[in-house]
């Protein structure tokens, strides 16, 4: 279910690294970033769908982690805390974007040529991206945290600061909505055709 970090799992002990970072050992930060960069980038990229923006927001997230550690803060559980910061950073980004009259999500800027050129390979992805972006942001966040970040419902509840049952119902609602999209697309004669004719 999870998106792998690529980092060696055997070296994982985030809370200990965070404690060391708080004690002034800056090498501990390197290990933390190497463990989480890929998956954190994946989470933020899926939310904003723009590579450059995702890079900036990842940097902002890690900057906050570093600053918190500098102030001596060590979270009880690192991963939910990290994604909570990332979620807040994304929310801040959208708030700023809305005051600048920008689109809150830059997903329309995704290269389209890719879809036609590699239609067979990317049609499924493109459909899924579009279907996910019809969901509300809170539902989408819950789905991403569940499916790509390897978090339990308890941890997602911690990230989103919600009761566990609310998280479950968000995931459930999100998946049911996706299910409806899929059924509609099938009824209309297949979503793959839509993608290939340029509607994506």
């Amino acid at each position: 279910m999870s998106e792998s970090d690529g980092a060696d799992r055997s070296i994982e002990n985030d809370e200990a690294s965070m404690r060391e970072l708080a004690e002034g050992n800056h090498h501990a930060f390197d290990a933390l970033v190497f463990r989480h960069h890929r998956s954190l980038f994946g989470y933020i990229y899926r939310l904003v769908l723009h590579e450059r923006t995702a890079e900036d927001l990842v940097q902002e997230t890690l900057m906050r982690v570093f600053q918190q550690a500098e102030e001596g803060f060590v979270p009880e559980r690192f991963k939910p805390w990290l994604y909570r910061i990332a979620t807040n950073v994304c929310k801040d980004h959208w708030k700023k974007a809305s005051t600048r009259h920008e689109r809150p999500m830059e997903w329309l800027q995704e290269p389209k040529g890719e879809v036609v050129t590699f239609a067979d390979r990317h049609a499924d992805r493109q459909w899924l991206v579009e279907a996910l972006h019809t969901l509300s942001i809170p539902n989408r966040m819950a789905l991403y945290l569940r499916f790509y970040q390897d978090l339990t419902y308890g941890e997602i509840a911690e990230v989103l600061d919600l009761p566990i049952n609310t998280v479950k119902s968000r995931v459930s609602r999100g998946l049911k909505a996706l299910e409806n999209h899929l059924n509609e697309a099938n009824d209309e004669g297949g979503w793959e055709c839509e993608v290939r004719t340029g509607r994506a």
Binding site: M1, G6, H37, R38, F41, G42, Y45, R46, E51, D124, R125, L128, V129, L132, L143, R146, F147, Y148, K168, V171, S172, L175, K176, L178, E179
Partner: peptide, 20 residues
Amino acid sequence: LDELEKKWMSRMTSFTTPVP
């Protein structure tokens, strides 16, 4: 919910992202 998760697990993997 379990059934829905199982059903969507493989499809969700198609939403790939750039990898740093």
